[in-house]
Design a protein around this nucleic acid. Structure first.
Length: 109
DNA sequence: GTGCTGACTGCAG
DNA sequence: ACTGCAGCCAGCA
């Protein structure tokens, strides 16, 4: 039995529009655990239980694909992002600020 | 039950 | 500007 908080993370991540990316901190803050962004990443680690979760759209606040290493292939995360129109160079999201999807702003608005 | 680690972030030096 | 430390929550040894 997973914590409800995990489900919330999955739900928010699933709501991330195609071609957009968000950060762990943004999700954490949206859930009310801004200081616990690591837990969000932990939830993503368990996201493999739910293939519907686009974890590749979740990056750190620098736009760096820190979690790419946890994917089957390190190129998978990048490939998925590139497939969605997200330019990724050197494991980093280009124009991260422009394609950044803020749940606090999008969902709360 | 206690302790460490982890896909992070923010503040301090 | 870059590096280092502390904090938060959950899972595993």
């Amino acid at each position: 039995m997973k914590s409800d908080f995990f489900k919330d993370v999955y739900d928010v991540v699933k709501l991330i529009p195609k071609g957009r990316v968000t950060s762990y901190g943004a999700i954490a803050k949206y859930l009310g655990i801004a200081r616990s962004a690591r837990v969000v990443g932990w939830a993503m680690n368990n996201s493999h239980l739910d293939m519907t979760i686009p974890a590749h759209r979740v990056v750190n606040r620098n736009g760096l694909l820190t979690g790419k290493h946890h994917f089957s292939k390190e190129n998978s995360m990048i490939n998925l992002l590139l497939n969605e129109g997200v330019t990724v160079i050197d494991n980093k999201v280009v124009d991260f600020d422009e394609i950044f999807w803020n749940p606090l702003k999008e969902l709360e608005l």
